[in-house]
């Protein structure tokens, strides 16, 4: 009968009471490697094999740079809009009661459930010069479809649930004692919001922004219909990759994809670091 110590020898983890570790862990690891890791590795392998000069020539060409500026810029702008309005929506859903609240809450998840292509053509139909909304904006000189503004509108649509769902639980958990304390100390409602509530939900808001931003940078289906896809002006980076692929320019596609992934990764790391720093300050 093996003793506990003899069972522990040579084990890289605690022996467990429940069965099935080998099977489930092995299966998960295998599936993960096959479906996710190996395919992702291909990109970096190919990039590495390209040689620095070629990589830069394609990955940082004028057209590519314009595409990055557009993709990252519109994603950031949409993220900011969503940060403001997502906070508003989360606030209203958590704090207030009104008829139809359940329906509204479900509606917030629509961008998450709706296929991107469907969203894309619907938004284009709305904002084209002859569309429901476009027909009013066009005479005012405000062009939405086929401009970066249209891209921002599309990204606001798909990014909203990330902000709302990130902020909601934190707002709900805040508890009213802290707000009551603030009120007993003489703070006005506005002061309580800016000094007590907002700082407490800041990290969650930042997370929501980061998620919406990351999604926005890589978004394809909801954007390509409304953007017009003019190189140098309204061509988003993912579309540039597709164009390169259609021309069998695999190197080009890979280089741009790599730059995008690395940039997104860096930005997300930065945001994660910011959050960890603020969490550390507050002593959790």
């Amino acid at each position: 009968m093996p003793t506990v110590s003899s069972r522990l020898k040579g084990h890289w983890r605690q022996p467990s009471v429940l069965p099935g570790f080998g099977l489930t862990f092995g299966l998960s690891l295998a599936w993960l490697t096959l479906i996710v890791l190996i395919p992702l590795a291909t990109i970096f392998l190919k990039s590495a094999g390209m040689g620095w000069h070629d990589f830069v020539a394609v990955g940082f060409s004028d057209r590519a740079l314009a595409a990055y500026r557009l993709s990252f810029g519109t994603a950031a702008a949409a993220g900011l809009v969503n940060a403001v309005f997502g906070l508003l929506v989360a606030w209203v859903l958590v704090r207030y009661a009104f008829p139809g609240k359940q329906v509204v809450s479900a509606l917030v998840d629509l961008p998450f459930a709706l296929p991107t292509a469907v969203a894309g053509i619907a938004l284009t139909a709305l904002y084209a010069p002859t569309g429901w909304i476009g027909q009013y904006l066009d005479p005012l000189g405000i062009k939405v479809a086929f401009t970066p503004l249209g891209i921002i509108v599309a990204l606001v649509f798909i990014g909203l649930p990330f902000v709302v769902r990130s902020v909601e639980p934190v707002l709900a958990d805040l508890g009213k004692e802290v707000e009551e304390a603030s009120a007993t100390l003489g703070a006005s409602r506005f002061q309580t919001f800016t000094r007590v509530i907002f700082p407490a939900i800041g990290p969650a808001l930042l997370t929501g922004f980061a998620l919406a931003f990351a999604r926005g940078v890589g978004e394809y289906g909801s954007v390509i219909f409304i953007s017009g896809n003019m190189p140098g002006k309204t061509e988003i980076a993912p579309l540039l990759i597709v164009t390169q692929l259609e021309q069998y320019a695999y190197d080009g596609a890979t280089a741009i994809a790599t730059v995008m992934m690395l940039a997104s990764f860096a930005i997300l790391l930065l945001i994660n670091w910011l959050q960890a720093a603020s969490r550390g300050r507050a002593g959790a």
């Binding site: 395919p39 695999y250 994809a257």
Partner: peptide, 16 residues
């Protein structure tokens, strides 16, 4: 897979 652009998700399989 969540943090990767859908287009890139397709690209990697084309590359493979």
């Amino acid at each position: 897979p969540f943090s990767v652009s859908p287009v890139v998700s397709g690209l990697i399989f084309v590359l493979l």
